[in-house]
Amino acid sequence: MGFFRNLGDIFQILRHVFRQVMSRPFTYFYPFEDREYPERTRGRHIHVREKCTACMQCVRACPNVAISIDKSDKHYEKDAALFFDYTRCIFCGMCTQACRFDALFHTKVVDISEGEREDLLYGPDKIETLDRDPLEWRGRRFR
């Protein structure tokens, strides 16, 4: 009986090994390959200045004081300049949930690492624009 039991075990192991060999790898060749991120991905933010009313709800909701606001810098009637400190941000999503005017969103851009610390302090120019399409970067392939 022992012989047949061992044989059964070996077949079961082989079954799993072959399944693994035939399936696609679970890892990505990262900077050149990436996966599709879900709709709700909490990546870097984007600020829609036309809709902003400078209500400060995002500043109050932030648990880590990553957002500051300059009300004197106005381009439209009610808006304000937003400064994001990504050295402090934990991407919890509290600010976007607090915004009732659809002026602050998360994007799918999750790779925002920089060489210098200062580059992570996003000023109003940087936080209002996406310098690149989140899905097209460095000629990435997606699977």
Partner: peptide
């Protein structure tokens, strides 16, 4: 490897794989 599939579900639900911040006083967020 099997755990990755649960993380995918968490990410689809909340947008984050580990720091989900799901429950909130009075209900859930997503």
């Amino acid at each position: 490897v099997d755990r990755e599939f649960f993380l995918d579900a968490f990410e689809e639900l909340s947008g984050s794989r580990h720091a989900v911040s799901y429950s909130t006083p009075g209900g859930v967020k997503y």
